[in-house]
Amino acid sequence: MQNKIKMIPLAGAIAMAFAFAGPVSAQEVVTIGQVSPLTGPNAHIGKDNENGATMAIEALNAKGTMIGGKKVTFVLQSEDDASDPKQGTAVAQKLVDAKVKGVIGHMNSGTTIPASKIYYDAGIPQISPSATNPKYTQQGFNTAFRVVANDGQLGGTLGRYAINTLKAKNIAVIDDRTAYGQGVAEEFAKSAKKAGGTIVATQFTTDKATDFNAILTSIKAKNPDLIFFGGMDAVGGPMLRQMDQLGIKAKFMGGDGLCTTELAKLAGAGLKDGQVVCAEAGGVPDAGKAALDAFKAAYQKRFNQEVVIYAPYEYDALMAMVAAMQKAGSSDPKKYLPELAKIHYSGVTGPISFDPKGDIKDGSLTLYTYKDGVRTLLTVTK
């Protein structure tokens, strides 16, 4: 199936400039790529990411952004990787061939990591708004950045929280064998064991599975206090339903892939109040809450739906990239990449700056539970 390019429409003034023979040399068009799963089980999260990029493009064009003394019109070239590594590298090459000035994406670690080599070879800066596997920024690619905490921070925090706050002693771990799911589950298990917990069962599934009765029945026999799932909400929701059917009362914990506003719909009656504890690989303390709340309200008005999870990070990633272009006075990747590496940008998700590997400095984590089907804040931590 061929991917369709979605282009954000050019401003009316540019359309008129092409319709008539007037001079257009003072007007620069800058195309930025966006990649996320727009089809498949993770499409609701991928579309949320795309929406965040759309809002950034629209905001930049509305205020008449200048780069190097020229007014710029931004265009978004949005591609679908369907959470598939092979498709991810194909669309990465497509964006390189289209000579985009930068890429926001990909969403999943499993597509972000292989695509990052293609962008690096082409010298195109890439900022992921949501990929958390540590390997992404450990490859030595100076074009790779992320605006969220990595799995070491995420899994480590959840492991400690499971033992020290939830008082879990016996823990079962399930992962979906993706780069993200396996990575966050391993970091969680390592941290939980270090904090004094016991891993009584380790099971595996896939990111497309729907039947978990065999692995859950095996886990039930171990009588765990808590089950940790490394994977996305599209799998975690049905898993919660089947836990309920099997009478498993254990707490259910997961990382950012699980921690969405859609989990309640996917889990249905399987989502009990206070049963799930999950972490978003980002977040702002109370001092920054007003800006994030304003973004969420604008998103609701623009798309007639709530933020699913990572739209604000996609928005900030694109805005930080453009801020680097403005500092360099150029949208040429070779010229603005050094500015991106040392950027200090104040975003709706908090301050954005990167360490030498491209990881966000002082990345926050937000822990949530669910009450009456609504994702409810527990705490923001580092």
Rank of each mutant, 00 (worst) to 15 (best):
Gly22Phe: 05
Leu226Ala: 14
Gln77Ser: 12
Asp332Cys: 07
Pro351Gln: 15
Asp81Cys: 07
Lys301Thr: 11
Lys382Pro: 03
Lys194Thr: 09
Ala328Trp: 04
Phe212Thr: 00
Val100Gln: 07
Gln87Trp: 05
Asp48Val: 03
Phe303Ile: 11
Ala11Gln: 11
Ser78Glu: 04
Val103Pro: 01
Gln153His: 09
Pro125Ala: 08
Met55Asp: 09
Ala209Cys: 00
Lys4Glu: 13
Met321Gln: 13
Ile45Arg: 14
Ala17Ser: 14
Ser109His: 03
Ser191Cys: 04
Ser364Lys: 14
Asn304Leu: 01
Phe229Ala: 08
Asn51Ile: 04
Glu262Phe: 09
Val173Gly: 01
Ala281Asp: 03
Phe74Gln: 11
Gly329Val: 04
Met1Trp: 10
Ala294Gln: 14
Val148Phe: 03
Asp151Asn: 10
Val96Leu: 12
Gly197Ala: 07
Val103Arg: 06
Val322Thr: 08
Gln87Tyr: 01
Lys47Asn: 13
Pro333Gly: 14
Lys194Pro: 00
His44Ile: 07
Ala82Gly: 00
Lys382Ala: 05
Val284Arg: 02
Gly159Tyr: 14
Thr54Glu: 13
Glu186Val: 04
Lys249Phe: 07
Glu187Pro: 00
Lys335Asp: 05
Thr178Arg: 00
Val103Ala: 03
Lys327Ala: 14
Cys278Pro: 00
Ser353Tyr: 09
Ala62Tyr: 10
His106Cys: 06
Gly105Phe: 03
Thr73Pro: 01
Gln275Trp: 06
Ile118His: 09
Leu365His: 09
Glu186Leu: 06
Asn3Cys: 07
Ala21Tyr: 03
Lys94Leu: 13
Pro338Lys: 15
Ala297Val: 05
Asp175Tyr: 08
Lys63Tyr: 01
Gly247Ser: 07
Pro114Ile: 13
Gln139Phe: 10
Thr217Cys: 02
